[in-house]
């Protein structure tokens, strides 16, 4: 990519990006603004993909809410993503970069 664009991107990128991998169970602290109020909404789930590069890098987190799968995609460098902490790693190492096959699984077979 163009050097100038890289320099511009650097200004908008976080310096200390939390380190986590596909398959990790993470807690994402996401800042929510409701009118004047600000609050932090945690989202706990399994990281199933990373896409993009530079400032536009995003990651997707999947969890099961009331028996229904829910996925959210967060921009890694967004100022609204306050922190990402690894709750625990996967039991077995994932063999692929995108864990989309978990969508078709339920219960024990969806465990890594």
């Amino acid at each position: 990519m163009d050097k100038i664009i890289q320099e511009v991107q650097k200004q908008y990128m976080k310096e200390d990006v939390p380190s986590f991998k596909v398959g990790d169970i993470v807690k994402v602290e996401y800042l929510i603004k409701e009118g004047q109020n600000e609050r932090v909404q945690p989202f706990i789930g399994q990281v199933i993909q990373f896409t993009g590069h530079g400032v536009s890098k995003t990651f997707a987190v999947r969890r099961i809410v009331q028996g229904e799968g829910v996925e959210r995609t967060f921009p890694l460098h967004s100022p609204r993503v306050l922190n990402v902490t690894v709750e625990r790693g996967p039991k077995r190492k994932p063999r692929r970069a995108k864990l989309f096959y978990l969508r078709e699984r339920a219960g024990r077979s969806a465990q890594l």
């Binding site: 664009i5 511009v8 603004k33 530079g54 536009s56 921009p75 100022p79 609204r80």
Partner: peptide, 12 residues
């Protein structure tokens, strides 16, 4: 092209 974040986190 690229993208930047505004202060409120909006992607432009």
């Amino acid at each position: 092209m690229t993208q930047i974040f505004r202060e409120d986190g909006m992607v432009v």
